[in-house]
Computed example of a mutant assay.
Amino acid sequence: MKYFVASGEDRRLTAEARHAMPGSFIELSDGITHYELTGPEDADVVVMAGGLTIPLFYWDSLATELNIRGLRTLTCSAYGRGYSDRVRARYDEKLFVRQLAELTERLGLTTRPLHLVGTSMGALVSMTYAAQHSASVATLTIVGPAGLAKPRLTSPHRLLRSDWLAGLIARRRGRQILQGHLGHNVRDPELRTELTEMVLDAFRFEGSLYAVFDTLQHLPVSGREDLFRQTGALGIPTLLLWGDEDEVTPMAHFDTARTLLRPRQHQVIAECGHMAPFERPREVADQIAPFVAARTERLES
């Protein structure tokens, strides 16, 4: 799909634009990444990989809860999201895995195994990362993962297979589709408004809608059972979490995920939609922190 600037994208990600933004920025091989590294310096590090549209601020409350529980957290905006660069490379799993690998290495975090958390599309990125860097992953937490819906003719990577059609849909209906998607992510109306404002603010920067639709073209979010099965065979201690009212990746896929991933632990988060780390940060932290601690105790014993 040819790169484009959509209507409403009236800002550019320049050094001046980034100057007033919280967090840190680092230049990696594909572009500049916006990240935050917080919590006790000598603690285990939890690295978080987000979904299709979310910036790193999505993780703020969960990061705070994990920091309180004695864990260090690394959050970032994937390329094309938040205030990381909009790149002209193909937006696929290779790009996002490379971003995480380079970021953790450049920040000196690879001297001990990491605890990886992936939600929605980020779960697919996390599983791919784990397959490629299994020795550096101590635990894997998967939250409301994409990938288990059956492929259909209307699946995004099939519907958008044609560059011409992908560009047409993205330009004409991209923002409308984006807002509709955001409306289904969160159960609580107030949190839904907060999430929408957070995402749409970042989507004022040129190349944002292009990044989303190029991702939908090149990162399949259905028919990924083999990736789940491969992850389950890695032997990495895995925690599976799911919101009981998830409308994006429905609970109907929960048993399939359990069968394929073979998680050590699993938990359904009550009264929660698709974005459990954003909607129920305390409950999610209550699951992750002891899971990480148990693995650390085994490694040190």
Rank of each mutant, 00 (worst) to 15 (best):
Q217T: 04
A166W: 00
T38W: 00
E105K: 14
A257S: 13
L234A: 05
G232T: 07
I177F: 12
L178E: 03
A49T: 09
I54D: 14
Y35S: 09
E225C: 01
L56A: 11
A233P: 05
L200W: 00
E93C: 12
P145N: 07
V212S: 03
E297F: 09
F213G: 06
L103S: 04
S29T: 13
F96T: 13
G108M: 02
A252R: 13
L74I: 10
R262D: 06
A294K: 08
S208T: 08
E16N: 05
D286A: 09
R69W: 00
Y210K: 09
A285M: 00
T238D: 00
D226K: 14
T119G: 10
R88L: 11
E271N: 13
E36F: 02
H133E: 13
V87W: 01
A138L: 06
A211M: 02
G207V: 07
T259L: 14
P237I: 02
A15D: 15
P40H: 06
I169D: 04
R262K: 15
G144V: 01
Q230F: 03
R152V: 13
G70K: 00
L153E: 15
T53Q: 06
L260N: 09
A89W: 03
E41L: 14
L241D: 01
L52C: 10
L74N: 08
A211R: 01
A149G: 11
F278D: 02
M21A: 15
H274T: 06
L13Q: 02
T139R: 04
R112N: 09
R69I: 00
I54L: 11
L74G: 09
E41N: 14
A211L: 02
T139W: 04
R280D: 02
A20V: 15
D44G: 15
R90Q: 13
T238F: 00
E247P: 03
I142T: 09
W242L: 10
T104L: 02
H19S: 14
K2R: 12
L160F: 08
A257E: 08
Y83A: 07
D85I: 08
I142P: 08
A6F: 12
A149R: 12
